[in-house]
Simulated scan of single mutants.
Amino acid sequence: MKAVLMTAAGGPEVLQLDEVAEPEIVAPGQIKVRIHAAGINPVDTKIRSRGLFQPGKLPVILGLDGAGEVCAVGAGVTEFKPGDAVWYCNGGLGREPGNYAEYTVLDAKAARRKPISVDFAEAAAGPLVLLTAWEGLFDRAGLQAGHTVLVHAGAGGVGHVAIQLAKWAGARVITTVGTPEKTAMVRELGADHVIDYHREDFVEETLDWTDGRGVDICLDTVGGETLTRSVGATAHYGSLVTLLQLSASDTAWNEARTRNLRLGFELMLTPLMRDLPEARAHQGEILDRCAGLIDDGLLKLCVTRRYPLAEASEAHAEIGGGRVRGKLVLMT
């Protein structure tokens, strides 16, 4: 089969299209999937540039998100049959092959039925960002109707679905973007107020929007100075959730303590990295909830460009440019 291999840690050029052996089912609980599309996420570019997240030997196949058609099932699988359309987040960290390929084999429990109202490309764009946004907003921050929410980088992969999930839950949403095109996009997705961070101070704008109180929940997808400054935009007794690591030089945490903020970290990869079956089952339930919202027309996955599998390196280069709206997808 054709697959894109990460041959070394480095720039996009280390991704090479090659022929590799087609994977086969080796355990009764596995399914084999003909991959039609693979989502591309920033974490893929981090693994490519920095090295594998899990023990593995190069070359490896990257890509956590996939959508495709079941073509074979193990003897113990009862929930799927050949021909079923599925979506999932699995592999791609080093230990298990990812989805920049024509086929994959995975545990049936890691897959869920694809939303019927979207194509494979849109489905492949969803799992990682949907799980991240849902866990960050609901599991970490306890989002409820009536809350005010600040979503950083609202036109990005996580941001654009976080806006929609927060609005669906009855929250008011303010978000940051960097271009007029992204402003238009997030307004269409339901954002109540939009901040152009190139021209406006997001802390001042957020405090003005909330009459000086700050937001109940801040979802940080940027890190660094944006994270530390977000303390000042979050209400006393509010929740600040970040997808990024804290810097040793951060100085805002005394103020966070004074405000009695709930600080949360969101890494949806933890169940994959630590082999936590209950957490993976919970993530499956989230995907089922999101599939329902998508099929009901309440949640949209924005795919801005579809690349052929052979152009994975070009797609990674585009993400590195920092101007992507929504998601990029590889078509196999």
Results as ranks from 00 to 15, higher is better:
130 L>N: 10
135 E>H: 08
136 G>A: 15
137 L>E: 06
141 A>Y: 01
141 A>D: 02
145 A>C: 05
148 T>S: 15
149 V>C: 06
150 L>W: 03
153 A>W: 04
155 A>C: 06
155 A>E: 05
156 G>Y: 01
156 G>S: 12
158 V>M: 06
160 H>E: 05
160 H>L: 07
161 V>W: 07
164 Q>L: 09
168 W>G: 00
169 A>V: 06
171 A>R: 08
173 V>W: 10
174 I>L: 07
175 T>A: 10
175 T>M: 12
177 V>I: 14
178 G>K: 07
181 E>S: 11
183 T>P: 04
184 A>G: 11
189 L>A: 05
192 D>T: 11
194 V>A: 06
194 V>N: 12
195 I>R: 01
195 I>G: 03
196 D>K: 09
198 H>F: 07
199 R>P: 00
203 V>M: 04
204 E>A: 15
207 L>T: 06
207 L>G: 07
207 L>K: 13
209 W>M: 05
210 T>S: 12
211 D>A: 14
213 R>H: 10
217 I>R: 03
223 G>K: 13
230 S>I: 08
233 A>Q: 01
236 H>E: 10
236 H>R: 14
236 H>G: 04
237 Y>D: 10
239 S>D: 01
239 S>A: 14
242 T>F: 05
244 L>W: 01
246 L>C: 10
247 S>G: 15
249 S>I: 13
249 S>T: 15
250 D>M: 09
254 N>C: 06
